[in-house]
Design a protein around this nucleic acid. Structure first.
Length: 438
DNA sequence: TCTGGGGTCCTAGGACCC
DNA sequence: TCTGGGGTCCTAGGACCC
C-alpha cells in the first residue's frame, strides 16, 4: 500500500506579511524585516524581492538605495509573529490531520484518503487563513516531504497554481522539466557547501541529483543526501519529528545575542550572561527539563580587520541537574570569568544549556535536590514575567528595566538595537491596534 | 558606525574496554 | 623492527534548516 501524501503549508513572506496585517497601508509596498540588532534582511515582501533585495544581506550595505526605492524596513517583532503563527497553525489543523509544526511559518499535515478531498481541504484552509489572519499561504502536496517542498515552491512562483500545487499534477504536465529547472542548492537539504561539491561533479539541478546513484552518494557524501535522492524519486525517508505540535522537548537550549555596542569589561559581560541564562532557564522550565551542564561563550567581530578575532568558551558541570536560575546564571558566569580577556571588544555572547534531562523522570535523595535551594525562585520570576512583562524582575543588574522600547529588555547599554519596531498588537494591551470608523 | 538566532543530525576521531 | 581487533561511548565540529 502506498502511504498517503504529505501536505506542506507555509506563509508567503511570513514576517513581512505579519507587519502588513496591522498596517494595511503597507499592502503592495516593498517591506523588509530585519534580524535582531537590525542586522540583516530576514524577510521581504514580494515587492521587495522584485527590487532585487536578497535575503541575508546586511541592512547597512543596502540601506540608502532601499530608502530611495521607498522600501519600508521593520525591526523583527517576534512577539507579534509568534502570536500570529499560533493562530495560523490552529486554523490549519482544523482542515487536515497530524499537524507537525516545522518552523514558525510552516507545517506538514497528512493528506485525506482521496486526492480530491485533499485538494478541497487545502483550498478551504488557504481561504480561512487569509480571511481569519490576513496572511497568504502556499500549499504543496506530494508523497515525500522533499517533493512537497518543491511543489510548495512551485505554488509560490506560478500564479496559475492559485497557491496550491500537487506534485503529481506538475510531474504529469511538465515531466522532468520541473526538476531540471530547480537549481541544486534550492533542494531541501542541500546547502551552500554541498551544492558546491555537487556542482563540481556536474550535478547542477534537482534532476541531476534525482538521477544520481544513491549508494555512491551515500559513500561520497552522507546518508542524509542519499535520503534526499530517494525522496526526489518519491520514496519517503524523512521521518516526522516527534510530536512537534505539542511543543517538542529540545536536547539543548541556546540563548545568544549580538550587542548593540562592543563590550569590554567583565561587569557588563557578566550582566549579559546573567540575563541570557535567565531567558534560557525560562525555556528550560517551560519544557519541563533540568540541565546538568552550562556553557557560556563570547566572541569579537569576525568582520573587524583591525583586531584579532577572539572567541572564548567554557563549561560548568553542575553537581545536580537543576532548573534554578540563580545556580544556572552563576554557572554561566563561572564558565567564562577565568578566561575573560578585558582587552578584546566583544560583540556577541551566549549561554548554552546542555545534558538536559526530563524533570519528571529525575529523582534524587531528599535534601540533595539542587532545585530546592531557592524555594521555587524560578517559578516566581516566571510568574512575575507573565503578569508584568519580561525583565521587570530579574537576578542581578541585568534585571533593570529601561525607559524606552529600544532597550526595554534590560535597560543596559549592551542590549539590542531595534529602531524600527512595530506594535505588538496581539499581545500587549497598550499596543493594541486602533481602528477608526468613518 | 552598522553583518541574526536557535535548533537538529551526522561523522570522524579519540578514549576506553575486553 | 614488526606491536590485535572489535566494540562502545563521548565530543567537537561540520552541515543543514528556517
Amino acid at each position: 500500500m502506498v502511504a498517503r501524501p504529505v501536505v506542506l503549508a507555509d506563509a508567503n513572506s511570513f514576517f513581512a506579511s505579519c507587519e502588513t496585517v496591522f498596517h494595511p497601508g503597507l499592502q503592495g509596498r516593498p517591506v523588509v524585516v530585519l534580524s535582531n540588532n537590525d542586522g540583516c534582511v530576514v524577510a521581504r515582501s514580494p515587492q521587495a524581492k522584485r527590487l532585487g533585495i536578497a535575503n541575508g544581506v546586511p541592512w547597512f550595505t543596502i540601506r540608502s538605495q532601499a530608502e530611495q526605492d521607498g522600501v519600508v524596513a521593520r525591526s523583527s517583532n517576534y512577539e507579534l509573529y509568534a502570536s500570529l503563527s499560533a493562530r495560523m497553525m490552529s486554523i490549519m489543523r482544523t482542515f487536515l490531520p497530524n499537524q507537525e509544526i516545522y518552523s514558525i511559518d510552516e507545517c506538514f499535515l497528512d493528506a485525506l484518503p482521496s486526492s480530491s478531498q485533499t485538494l478541497q481541504a487545502c483550498r478551504s484552509m488557504r481561504d480561512s487563513v487569509l480571511k481569519g489572519i490576513g496572511i497568504p499561504i502556499s500549499v504543496g502536496v506530494a508523497h515525500t516531504k522533499t517533493l512537497a517542498k518543491i511543489s510548495n515552491h512551485w505554488a509560490k512562483s506560478h500564479v496559475s497554481a492559485h497557491g496550491i500545487t500537487r506534485w503529481d499534477d506538475i510531474a504529469r504536465d511538465q515531466g522532468k522539466n520541473v526538476l531540471t529547472e530547480i537549481p541544486i542548492d534550492e533542494v531541501w537539504g542541500v546547502g551552500r557547501r554541498l551544492s558546491r561539491r555537487l556542482q563540481a561533479l556536474g550535478m547542477v539541478n534537482a534532476w541531476d541529483l534525482h538521477e544520481a546513484d544513491p549508494a555512491s552518494i551515500r559513500h561520497r557524501f552522507s546518508v542524509q543526501l542519499e535520503r534526499t535522492v530517494l525522496e526526489l524519486r518519491g520514496i519517503p525517508c524523512v521521518e516526522a519529528g516527534d510530536d512537534a505540535s505539542q511543543g517538542r522537548r529540545t536536547t539543548q537550549i541556546l540563548c545568544s545575542r549580538m550587542f548593540s555596542h562592543p563590550v569590554t569589561g567583565w561587569e557588563m559581560m557578566g550582566q549579559a550572561l546573567s540575563v541570557y541564562a535567565q531567558k534560557a532557564c525560562r525555556r528550560l522550565r517551560n519544557q519541563g527539563s533540568l540541565c546538568a551542564q552550562v556553557s557560556a561563550f563570547c566572541s569579537t567581530s569576525p568582520h573587524d580587520d583591525e583586531h584579532e578575532y577572539v572567541t572564548l568558551h567554557g563549561t560548568t558541570q553542575l553537581s545536580n541537574p537543576c532548573d534554578d536560575p540563580l545556580t544556572i546564571a552563576k554557572a554561566a558566569c563561572d564558565a567564562l570569568r577565568e578566561r575573560f580577556d578585558g582587552h578584546a571588544r566583544f560583540v556577541r555572547a551566549g549561554v548554552l544549556l546542555l545534558s538536559l534531562v526530563d524533570a519528571a523522570q529525575f529523582h534524587t535523595l531528599e535534601g540533595l535536590d539542587a532545585r530546592r535551594d531557592t524555594h521555587g525562585l524560578g517559578e516566581v520570576l516566571d510568574d512575575a514575567a507573565r503578569r508584568f512583562g519580561p525583565a521587570r524582575v530579574g537576578i542581578g543588574y541585568g534585571g533593570i528595566r529601561g525607559h524606552d522600547r529600544g532597550n526595554e529588555d534590560t535597560g543596559a547599554q549592551w542590549t539590542m538595537r531595534r529602531e524600527m519596531l512595530s506594535s505588538r498588537s496581539t499581545t500587549r494591551w497598550d499596543e493594541m491596534a486602533v481602528v477608526h470608523a468613518v
